[in-house]
Design a protein around this nucleic acid. Structure first.
Lengths: 118, 118
DNA sequence: TCCTTAGTTCAAAAGTTATTGAACAATTGG
DNA sequence: CCAATTGTTCAATAACTTTTGAACTAAGGA
């Protein structure tokens, strides 16, 4: 079972911008960027909303071509489509991520790393 | 009489992205960028919609901090807030404009330059 | 002053997006 | 098989956005 993703050349600029223009989704992208290389699953974003709501936002990101979701068991491993976005809209993702990294008004993922007890 | 504009450091990334994530507004920004230096008034965008609708979209761009509107007589001279946007979100505007310039699906202004008849 | 030009405001209608909870499916481990 | 884990789907609702037309304001020119 694979999930639908737009082909690289079907990624639309206004749709990408509209999808990124939501604080929850921007926070998701920022977190993905901060962990680039490490595929994350949906539950790692639960700080940002309910399970259902994240399913909705992650679907929006995927359908816009911003993220890729690979089904592995019961998980979906989510990654940024950096290569496709960079090819299609050079510099856009980097500037958005850099700006999002500075944005303290954005919701954040984190604060519950597993403590290594003594 | 002056119109309300956000101060440079109040410009918000998600709001800017959401505002740019509309084809009409992206077309406005693309046209402003293509004529950078030349202040344009609202009626020069009438290709993109009705007068009322443009008033709405231009207000959104201004309130988001993407454009500046100066009242001159009965006109508003509209310019991109390139300096403020570049300072706040380096590279963002350039990458958006470059991508928008390539986007043939976007509505366009133009096609009615005054013909110089023989 | 009267008319035109430039643009705004308002209210209504239409459309879209976000959020929720309950129910569902699929995989994994015991 | 059973239960737990992961995530989706559905329907409802709430909230927002876009578009429209009519009425309006403000400035400028005849």
């Amino acid at each position: 079972m694979t999930l639908p993703h737009p082909h690289a050349d079907q990624i639309s600029l206004p749709i990408v911008l509209a999808v990124l223009g939501d604080p929850t989704r921007l926070a998701i992208v920022r977190y993905l960027a901060s962990k680039e290389g490490v595929p994350l699953n949906c539950s790692q974003f639960l700080d940002l909303g309910s399970k259902t709501n994240l399913s909705y936002h992650l679907a929006k990101l995927r359908e816009a071509g911003v993220t890729r979701a690979e089904v592995v068991g019961t998980s979906r491993l989510i990654t940024l489509r950096r290569d496709d976005l960079d090819a299609r809209f050079p510099g856009l993702l980097d500037s958005v991520i850099a700006a999002a990294a500075e944005d303290t008004a954005l919701p954040a993922v984190g604060g519950h790393e597993v403590e290594i007890s003594a």
